[in-house]
Design a protein around this nucleic acid. Structure first.
Lengths: 243, 243
DNA sequence: ACTCAAAAATGAGCGTACTCCGTTATATTG
DNA sequence: CAATATAACGGAGTACGCTCATTTTTGAGT
């Protein structure tokens, strides 16, 4: 009755095998089979979503290509949306690795808008490759079943990125000589990061569903982020109030 | 083969009836039947969604309560999500009427944050009554089928409100004596309004799906709007850069 | 009043996501 | 190695959103 993913140590228990490493040592046939199927399912979903688009792929299609029964599929992902989340969590992780330089020593000479855009750029590149599926991905992240395993993973991913952005923003608080901008007093960096991500989510959805052309996304997102960074209104300098 | 909604004049054509008004005069049996069913369907959907929540209501349930056949339902709304949009467009219209004082002469003494919150408050009140369904409504507005009739209506509603907010923001450009804030140079009021709405959409979703308690919504939304209005970072005054 | 074309309603039927329980494969124990 | 327990699998079955061919209703023309 256990799901295959909710890990139990493979051949653990009384097994007196002196396995040094935690997970990967002597997985046992069962564990190997599971891993194998997991891999096949991931590959099948990846390929089919890419080929036909999320909406035109049936779970049966995926099961067939992965060479598992229809019912088995749902032991590895509890729903079709969860399959999408599984695939795209991978995609986003891939896109992000390498770009994720230590945020604490982010290039301070960069204007905050540019610093943040640099962090988000790989996601935009990925989105340009799969616009529609990316939109569905965003939808599931934002509105999906709260219980999904892969959705939880996606939320972690997003939270991580938000935290990174928050850290970058906080960096502008410590007055380094080169900087010309600093965090406004009373602003919660975490909340600020979340607001920026809100814009990203919805921009990706707009483009993915064709409400806005994909090419204009980097520019328009930059403009939006710049807006929230610097604000919509400003104080009227007491003296300057002309007329 | 025509949908009932794609209006044709009721008993129009060669009918020599000297009907003064356009739509409401002598509708003819057909038109009356349609209106009647439309009304029954709206009422049924409204009630059932409110009673059980969107997810737990089947289209069959709605058809039964409206006393129409299952197939007939889809002549009045092309999908289940469209039924939700139909219901909530009404709800939002109801919530907004009365509050929509002329934005061009909005109380200029009000800080922009308060002015905008005043416009959005009725929506928050409505959301508090149907948190989950409101979240689904937002989802459909943002991610729904681009072809839906009622979705188009919803987008118009939202666009209208955004335009109102944009107008309010523009108002802060014309330097009225009382004001202490003005629109920053180079800021597009329409884009600003859209960003604010992005925050609203996602805040409603977060609360509706239980990621945030409903009670805290007005406060937290206010904080977010305040953030985007006044910005996250500020220029470092050349002289003030201490240390 | 009768005919006829068009519009609307109907409900059986279809595709698909997901479930459930009987079967099979794997590990554990004596 | 046999017996047993349990995890994984399979695939027929189910529920539900939606479609479509057919039937019914409506209203204009004669």
């Amino acid at each position: 009755m256990r799901r295959p993913d909710e890990g139990t140590t493979p051949a653990a228990g009384a097994a007196a095998v002196a396995d040094a490493d935690a997970a990967s040592a002597t997985p046992g046939r069962r564990e190997r089979n599971k891993r194998d199927k997991q891999g096949r399912i991931l590959a099948a979903a990846e390929d089919l979503f890419a080929e036909r688009g999320y909406a035109l792929v049936t779970t049966q299609d995926i099961a067939d290509r992965a060479d598992v029964a229809a019912g088995t599929l749902f032991r590895y992902a509890s729903s079709k949306p969860e399959l999408l989340l599984m695939v795209f969590n991978n995609e986003w992780r891939r896109a992000l690795t390498g770009t994720r330089h230590d945020p604490t020593k982010a290039d301070a000479s960069l204007a905050p808008t540019d610093a943040i855009m640099a962090l988000l750029l790989p996601l935009l590149t990925s989105a340009a490759r799969h616009p529609e599926n990316t939109a569905y991905y965003q939808r599931e992240i934002l509105c999906g079943e709260p219980t999904g395993t892969y959705r939880a993973e996606a939320l972690e991913l997003v939270d991580g990125l938000e935290a990174t952005i928050a850290t970058v923003l906080s960096g502008y608080g410590t007055e380094t000589p080169g900087e010309s901008e600093r965090l406004r007093r009373g602003v919660d960096p975490a909340l600020a990061a979340r607001s920026i991500f809100s814009l990203l989510h919805l921009a990706l959805i707009r483009c993915g569903l064709g409400r806005e052309p994909m090419e204009s996304l980097p520019d328009s997102l930059r403009t939006e982020i710049d807006l929230v960074l610097h604000g919509i209104v400003e104080q009227v300098p007491a003296a300057t109030a002309e007329a």
